[in-house]
């Protein structure tokens, strides 16, 4: 853990909050506990005027975070969010393709879903502190824990996705294969949507405050990814539904991301700055380019369809990594925890 030191070159590792003002900047009007006025004024230089101006300062303990950011690895967990969405929405696309007699697309999507869900499971187990205990996930089923619900969803969905793909590849048990395809398509949306609750059900401001929009953003992103995969891997003659999904998914992703930022309040900044900001902007650009490319050229030229598909897949991945990093940034900076809570208290009176 450490940190500050005096070296020949001067001070190192100084804490940002070390020089911060102590005592809450909002003590006067906003805080629950009012102090005698004169003293306040001396400390803050004009405490009386602070009655009208919303205070800009907030107090913290040496600038340290209030909550603990998750120790999840981005490639594992953000990667899982992407792959899980691709698998879930992909299974719906596979079933749609199968039922409307688009066999090549159906097979490609079944394979993609099986691969994605297998990689998902590997990433999730890899991220555990005790990977050998992964089966403990199925000790209980707790509706209060999205991770528990998700584990059971994956336990149900994974084998179905596997059966659907294997039956298609080998040609064995076609009826059972079709049933598995349809069942996987029933699980798919849940697999794609529950991750919204998974992230939001934490104290991480950027995630929790956006809990109403998060599932929509994630299913939209999942649809974008699945459409991208179908454009990339499916034949031209069969990709019309994928092009439609691409347009719907990219538009919905754009709208949901905006809504999420609006809901996130002060923590919205974390979606606009730094690594998260770059990823979110990249996701928007790639999503729009991919959807436009798919709509204009995706039905005409194979390379264009593939390129648009790759852009859509990348857009979906960028969204997931962007959301992940915004959450980390909002957890690491105490202001996103303290200030909204202060404002809530002030509003409640």
């Amino acid at each position: 853990m450490s940190e500050a030191g005096v070296t020949r070159e001067g001070l190192t590792g100084r804490r940002p909050g070390r020089e911060a003002r102590f005592g809450n900047g909002m003590n006067g009007p906003a805080g629950r506990h009012r102090r005698p006025e004169g003293r306040e004024g001396e400390r803050r230089g004009g405490g009386a005027r602070a009655e009208v101006v919303p205070p800009a300062a907030f107090a913290s303990y040496y600038g340290r975070p209030v909550i603990k950011p998750p120790s999840w690895e981005a490639p594992d967990i953000a990667g899982y969010l992407f792959l899980g969405g691709l698998a879930g929405a992909g299974s719906v696309l596979a079933a749609g393709a199968e039922l409307t007699r688009r066999p090549a697309t159906a097979r490609a999507m079944k394979l993609s879903s099986l691969t994605a869900v297998s990689l998902s499971a590997a990433a999730l187990i890899h991220d555990l502190g005790r990977p050998e205990r992964f089966l403990h996930m199925l000790r209980v089923l707790k509706p209060t824990s999205p991770m528990s619900v998700g584990s059971w969803l994956l336990a149900g969905y994974g084998p179905l996705a596997g059966a659907a793909a294997l039956s298609d590849l080998t040609g064995l048990l076609p009826r059972a294969g079709r049933a598995a395809t349809c069942a996987a398509a029933a699980f798919g949306p849940a697999v794609a949507a529950y991750t919204g609750a998974l992230l939001s059900d934490t104290a991480v401001p950027a995630w929790h405050e956006g809990h109403r929009a998060m599932p929509y953003l994630f299913t939209a992103s999942a649809a974008t990814a699945a459409a991208g995969m179908a454009l990339l891997a499916g034949p031209l003659a069969e990709n019309r539904p994928a092009r439609r999904v691409a347009a719907l998914g990219a538009a919905a992703e754009l709208a949901a991301a905006r809504t999420l930022r609006r809901q996130a309040g002060r923590a919205a900044e974390t979606y606009e700055r730094g690594a998260a900001g770059r990823l979110m902007r990249l996701a928007e650009g790639l999503g729009l380019a991919g959807a436009a490319g798919a709509a204009l050229l995706g039905g005409r030229a194979r390379p264009a369809a593939a390129l648009a598909g790759a852009a859509l897949l990348a857009a979906s991945a960028c969204t997931r990594f962007g959301v992940f990093h915004a959450g980390l940034a909002s957890a690491r900076d105490p202001q996103y925890t303290v200030r909204p809570q202060r404002e809530r208290l002030a509003a409640a009176g």
């Binding site: 949306p189 794609a192 949507a193 919204g196 609750a197 998060m214 599932p215 649809a223 999904v245 719907l248």
Partner: peptide, 16 residues
């Protein structure tokens, strides 16, 4: 909202 989002996903595919 997760249920709504899942339903929306299914709806979008049905439409497509």
């Amino acid at each position: 909202h997760a249920a709504g989002a899942a339903a929306a996903l299914l709806g979008a595919f049905a439409l497509a």
